[in-house]
Write a protein that binds this DNA or RNA. Structure first.
Lengths: 278, 278
DNA sequence: ACCATTTTGGAATAAACGTTCCACCGCAAG
DNA sequence: CTTGCGGTGGAACGTTTATTCCAAAATGGT
């Protein structure tokens, strides 16, 4: 170990997960082979630290436990136990007693209102996690670019998707971005409002609504870019859109929470606004 | 310990959290004092088991560690370690590497689309947890009763709340429950559609929209029951509604995810449908 | 009030785990 | 080829934590 060693060891330990990640990044690249293996493995499996023993983490990284111990010390902790405490605390703060509460709500019995709330909360949370896990960043960036360049954004979404579309309309309005909600009021399709330089953002979940598909086809025929927000698999829509964003929404019963779709839509809207300003 | 003891000990351990809770309930009431204390404390703090030592849990329950050990064995486990494993596994399955992924998304830098998604996901998840934590079951049951008795349910919700109201309209339609969405199209207030035997379900977040308040007042004047779904504090609305349901929605930036509001609304709708059928 | 039986608390024991230490290896400079 | 030094692995150690056991207290029935 080089001479600046003492300096590293004397620095105090990261107090937050973010600080931990920062130091991990700072160290990467200037470490001997085994320690680098530790760093790599830990970066990829941070969530396992809270519940695993040194031996387990070390095995996962393919190093002997003593190497992992050295790594912990280089990170500024006195040892593995201290490092683990950081992750344990983060984990327990994350779930104050949410799990218990959920369980208690469910305990009321099937059909009880509180049980239903618990189920929908659970479905929503899982949807959020699925979104974070499966997000296609490339597609998202592409969608942002497309929509940021559009003069006017046309929003389509009927039935289940209508709440998402209408919320987007509200948000775009607040952000000062020209957007038109195709709501089908009075049976009008507003096709003629699609003009060169515009773009279409359609939200539809399988089974896809006829109106949405028609509008998308129409937009494509006119050469307008189309972004579709839908659920996987989206094979059928491949020919209809330039960019396809998918969200896996976990349903409870026949109803979906829309949480993930709304979160993605919201992020999309804010990102478009940011991009436009610059 | 009574004679059926052997039978209990030989039963194998619960394999899931739900099975665990079942046995806990089954045992409650027929246990000696100290063991009952264990059962009570554990029922209330199940989420702490994964990360605590026997000594800590025992102290929390106000019993010596040995009592807690006996309790674990009565529950069918070989000891505390085996019981803890159940909770640890549940905990780690719940977060495969959601936390890591979120962190990676955020790492992209402020303003990046993926960072925004991470933020909204985080906000949504927190909202869900807040809903589960703060749900007023009494108010919820009351709301269900009120709405289940109504001939027609009138839905009001403008601006931010409109997506929630429109989703409710969709869901009630699918459930075969008569509901009218007051969408303000053509500037009509549809006041005359409020008839005896109906009920109003209004969704509004502060600052409350004028139209919604007007409609609620109108309904009350006619003696119709009013249920309001809003955010805390709801003091101003006290005089306007028979039942007030509150959801704490965590916003990111100026926008709220609506996750919690939608989850609650959905649960309400399904509960009303269930109640009607019976 | 006495006995049989269950329950209890804490001290003793065992297991798991974190941590340290040291002998050995590999590499790079002389 | 030798020497020096950081890097490495595994065995030994110490601490923490789970688990058992038994004597004492409590309980309930007669």
């Amino acid at each position: 170990m080089p001479k600046e060693d003492a300096a590293i060891l004397l620095r105090d330990a990261p107090q937050t997960i973010d600080a931990f990640r920062d130091r991990l990044l700072g160290l990467s690249g200037q470490l001997p082979r085994r320690l680098q293996q530790c760093a790599d493995h830990i970066a990829r499996h941070m969530d396992q630290i809270a519940l695993s023993t040194v031996a387990q983490v070390a095995e996962g990284a393919g190093v002997p436990p003593s190497a992992m111990m050295r790594f912990c010390q280089i990170m500024g902790f006195s040892g593995y136990a201290e490092m683990q405490r950081l992750f344990r605390e983060a984990l327990s703060r994350a779930t104050p007693d949410y799990a218990t509460r959920l369980a208690n709500l469910k305990a009321g019995g099937a059909g009880q209102p509180s049980t239903l709330v618990a189920e929908f909360v659970e479905a929503g949370r899982q949807s959020m996690e699925a979104l974070a896990r499966d997000l296609d960043e490339t597609a998202l960036n592409q969608a942002v670019t497309t929509l940021a360049q559009a003069r006017t954004i046309h929003l389509a979404g009927f039935r289940r998707s209508f709440p998402v579309a209408s919320y987007l309309a509200y948000v775009f309005d607040k952000l000062g971005i020209p957007a038109i909600l195709h709501d089908g009021v009075a049976g009008l399709a507003h096709r003629s409002s699609l003009r060169p330089g515009d773009a279409l953002l359609a939200i539809t979940f399988s089974p896809y609504s006829e109106e949405t598909l028609t509008l998308a086809t129409h937009a494509r025929d006119q050469g307008l870019p189309v972004v579709i927000l839908t659920d996987p698999p989206a094979n059928q829509l491949a020919g209809l859109a330039d960019t396809i964003l998918t969200v896996t929404e976990i349903d409870f019963g026949a109803f979906r929470s829309l949480s993930a779709a709304i979160a993605l839509a919201l992020a999309l809207a804010v990102a478009v606004a940011t991009r436009r300003e610059t």
